[in-house]
Amino acid sequence: MSPVPGAAPSARTRELLSDGARRSLLVAILNGTLVAGERLHDDELIQWLGVSRTPIRTALERLAEVGLVEMAPNRFTRVAVPTRSSLLETLQLYAALHAWVAEAVVPGLGDDDLAELHRCFGRVTELAAQQGEHAWSRADLALVDEAVSFFAHRTGNPLLLDLLFEIRVRLAFSFSSLRAFGDGAELTALAEALLAAADRRDGRVVADVLRERFSWRIVRVGGSG
C-alpha cells in the first residue's frame, strides 16, 4: 500500500480520527491505490493512516457494512471483491431510489428543467453511440449517474443525497474492478423511453423505465481496455 497524501493526523478527537481514516481508505479504494481483494494489515494501516487500531477498526467496519471491505474474523481483512451479482444488487437499489424520487419530481418539472433533462440524457445517448465493448472510465459512469441523479437533486432531501453518494462509491468501485460498462443499445432505449415519459410529465412511467432497465440487461462486465 502506498501512503495517500493529505492523511496526516493531528490532535483530534477519536470521532474525527475514524472519519479521516475512512475517507482515506475510501479515496484509496476509488482511485485504485487499493485494489479489489487486497489484504489490509493492521500494522501497515496504522503506519499509513497515522491513527491507532480502534479508529481504524471503526473505519473498516463502516466500509464493511456497505460492502467495500470484507472482514473475516481471526483471518484477514481485505478490500472487497465485487462480483457481477453484487454489482447487480447495488444497481437494483440504485435504480429503486432514483425511480422512487423521479415519480415525485417529474410531474412538477418546468420547461427549463425538462430542457436540462434532455441535455443530460442527450449526453448519455452520445456515450451509448460510441459504446463498444470497452470498460467504462469513471467519467463515463459519472456522466450516466449525472443524468439519472437529475431527479434526486430536485428533492431537497439531504439524507437521500448522502446515501446516494455512498451507493455511487460502491457502484464506481464495482464498475472499475469488473471492467463493467453499459450496453449501448439498452442505454439508448432507456434514454428514449425516459424522455418521452418525462415530456408527458408522467412520473410513474419514468420510474418504471428506471426500475426495469437498470438491471442485468444494461450492465456488461469484462470490457476491454
Binding site: Q92, A96, L97, W100, V101, A104, T155, L159, L163
Partner: peptide
C-alpha cells in the same frame, strides 16, 4: 424535520 426525509428513503426501500 428529518422524518419526511427518512420516510422518503424508507418508502423507496419498502417498494423494492
Amino acid at each position: 424535520g428529518r422524518i419526511p426525509e427518512l420516510l422518503q428513503v424508507m418508502c423507496a426501500f419498502w417498494e423494492l
